[in-house]
């Protein structure tokens, strides 16, 4: 792709470059031995850990790479969630709540009701898990409402080439959470049902030993589909939403006549997106509760 520092050289960006730049993560990873880097030098023996410069370097890194921006925003928002809720937890008392405490208690009560409606087992993990997922995913999605150019351009000025600030547009982040939920599903399935879990996989939906392989295949596919659909639904929705923000932002470059319609589109999509980000966080949370509830049900 031969990326140049476009801002620095003052060359005009094409729309395609603009979109690709906005969709590229700040990646730190290990380049394989013998790779020719963008500045001409070849990676020496044992490989080299470096920030990737361009899509070909990211591709060459493969699995040995970290999306620094996604992780930093994700963990940063998680820390904000923990700090905020801990602050309230310390101040929560039976006295009259006020302001922020009241709001946070409202959120907690909402989650508590959702969990009580759906999950009927005895498990002290599910409610805090649901709260963490809802608020954390919501905060990550909320980053989508920050105008798409602000943070990346500031970062370019600061010398950091790429910056994707919406962690939930990164499949690593959404799938990471989905895998976490999946681990809990497996753990509680085995803990609650024991051998019954294997029986459930082998003898459903056709209860006859001849069909065991067919049943196993179908049930395992169904089981694996849960975390995949969970993680990819959030990723897909947020990625598509972000993409539309970027496309609308690209319209601003199409001429002075486009400024007003593009502004209106941007505002309209942002307002609609307030609904989407909340809904996606809510769906992720509800499905987590439902899956864990299924893991606790013994047939």
């Amino acid at each position: 792709m031969g990326q140049q520092r476009m801002a620095a050289t003052g060359q005009e960006k094409t729309v395609s470059d603009y979109i690709v730049h906005h969709l590229t993560n700040l990646t730190y990873g290990k380049l394989p031995e013998g790779f020719d880097r963008y500045d001409g030098h070849t990676v020496g023996a044992g490989g080299e850990w470096a920030f990737a410069h361009g899509a070909d370097e990211i591709a060459a890194m493969g699995f040995n790479a970290v999306h620094v921006d996604s992780l930093a925003w994700s963990i940063g928002l998680g820390v904000i969630f923990c700090a905020l809720f801990r602050w309230v937890a310390v101040r929560a008392s039976a006295e009259t709540p006020s302001g922020l405490v009241n709001f946070i208690e409202m959120v907690v009560e909402f989650i508590d009701n959702q969990v009580k409606d759906t999950f009927h087992g005895q498990n002290k993990l599910v409610a805090p898990l649901a709260l963490t997922i809802f608020v954390w995913v919501f905060l990550m999605n909320l980053m989508d409402l920050i105008p798409v150019d602000v943070v990346p351009e500031l970062m370019v000025l600061a010398g950091i080439e790429y910056q994707k600030i919406v962690p939930s547009t990164d499949p690593n982040i959404t799938m990471g959470m989905a895998v976490g939920v999946f681990i809990l599903m497996l753990y509680y399935s085995i803990k609650v049902k024991g051998f019954g879990f294997a029986k459930e996989l082998a003898l459903n939906p056709f209860n006859h030993w001849v069909f065991i392989p067919v049943n196993l295949f179908m049930e395992i596919v169904g089981l694996l589909a849960k975390p995949f659909s969970l993680g990819l639904r959030l990723f897909g929705n947020m990625y598509a939403g972000e993409m539309i923000f970027i496309l609308i932002a690209a319209l601003f470059g199409a001429g002075i006549l486009w400024v007003l319609p593009a502004s209106l589109l941007q505002i309209g999509w942002a307002i609609f997106h307030i609904l989407v980000i909340t809904l996606q966080a809510f769906i992720f949370m509800v499905l987590t509760i439902v899956y864990l509830s299924m893991a606790h049900e013994d047939h």
Partner: peptide, 16 residues
């Protein structure tokens, strides 16, 4: 692409 980020996210998820 899926890479080490997913491991980091799982760890952070569990911690939070």
């Amino acid at each position: 692409n899926i890479n080490l980020t997913i491991i980091g996210q799982i760890v952070a998820f569990i911690a939070f």
